[in-house]
């Protein structure tokens, strides 16, 4: 277990360092960041002044080490656009995105698992086919367009829900449905496949043979084993959704991480962008590390291989 732990930690640290380099270089790939920031009709002297003010005149590796050193101690610098500390922008945006991700995942799991179970139990019937149509549709629908359609239907025609902003829970209804739809297909397919496999296994036949009611066989015996992969997938999904809700946040005017990232890209606000990318990556790395360790704890085959 110790060597497994050390191995995983080493990989996690390597990946974190690489990701930080990539996050750092994203907007710098454009070439002269100082000239971009100074504006189109800036003189040489002005560009040089901007470069000096933001420390852009130093060699790249010095800039990186300076940024990384500060980042480790929690100082992520200031936004070029608003002069706010990046840390405050992050902590202001995370709750919104986390709320959206948790709501959407709850709804997604709440729909995907029952759908998957029903599809597996009634395999190759019309019920299974309907579930498959939901899965294919959810995979194929353009997320941003679905969001617009929700606004059109529930916000404008039916006038049931607010369509932009984040003041109340009601504001989260449409974004939650929009994000949840994208997470359903994969979980449904995995639940269905897992259930079909488990339902054919010997211990389920034994359970049936000793006369247990079908309900208890499906929910108590089969489901427990079949949804294990869904649980770890949901964890990884959470990490993915932190950066994956850019479009939905933009459409519904939610002030979350994705929206901040998008704003930072448009404004060339590199301190904010590199911090958002680094932050999301680190959360993802931590989540997968935890998921790996839990799996290894539960399943000796993984840590011994």
């Amino acid at each position: 277990m110790i060597s497994f732990l050390v191995n995983r930690l080493f990989i996690a640290i390597m990946v974190t360092v690489t990701v930080s380099v990539i996050a750092f270089s994203l907007l710098r790939l454009s070439g002269d960041l100082a000239a971009e920031l100074a504006g189109d009709d800036a003189t040489e002297a002005e560009i040089a002044a901007v470069a000096k003010a933001y420390g852009l005149d130093r060699p790249l590796y010095v800039q990186y080490l300076d940024w990384a050193g500060h980042a480790v101690s929690g100082d992520l610098g200031q936004s070029i656009f608003s002069n706010e500390p990046v840390w405050e922008i992050l902590t202001g945006a995370v709750p919104t995105t986390a709320k959206l991700a948790v709501l959407a995942l709850s709804l997604g799991v709440g729909l995907a698992i029952p759908l998957g179970i029903v599809a597996a139990v009634f395999q190759n019937t019309w019920i299974d086919r309907c579930a498959l149509i939901v899965a294919v549709g959810g995979q194929a629908v353009p997320n941003f367009w679905f969001g617009l359609m929700m606004i059109l239907l529930f916000g404008v025609i039916l006038r049931w829900t607010p369509i932009s902003g984040q003041e109340t829970m009601a504001h989260f209804i449409l974004p939650t449905i929009t994000v949840a739809l994208t997470t359903i297909p994969q979980k449904m397919r995995i639940t269905r496949a897992g259930m079909i496999e488990v339902l054919q296994s010997d211990y389920i036949r034994t359970a049936k043979a000793k006369g247990l009611p079908t309900r208890s066989v499906i929910f108590k015996h089969a489901l427990r084993n079949a949804i294990l992969p869904v649980v770890s997938l949901t964890m990884v999904n959470f990490g993915f959704l932190l950066g994956g809700t850019v479009v939905v946040e933009t459409i519904f005017a939610l002030n979350g991480l994705g929206f901040e990232a998008f704003q930072a890209i448009i404004r060339q606000d590199f301190p904010v962008l590199q911090s958002v990318v680094l932050f999301i990556s680190v959360i993802y790395i931590l989540l997968t590390l935890v998921a790996d360790l839990i799996n290894a704890r539960l399943d000796p085959r993984i840590r011994l291989s």
């Binding site: 390597m14 950066g243 448009i266």
Partner: peptide
């Protein structure tokens, strides 16, 4: 190879894509 894959998975794909398209 696993290190490459892990790095790719850890990056927020859509945000990186948006930044690269914005830059280039």
């Amino acid at each position: 190879v696993m290190y490459l894959i892990n790095t790719k998975l850890a990056l927020p794909g859509l945000v990186v894509t948006l930044s690269l398209v914005a830059v280039f």
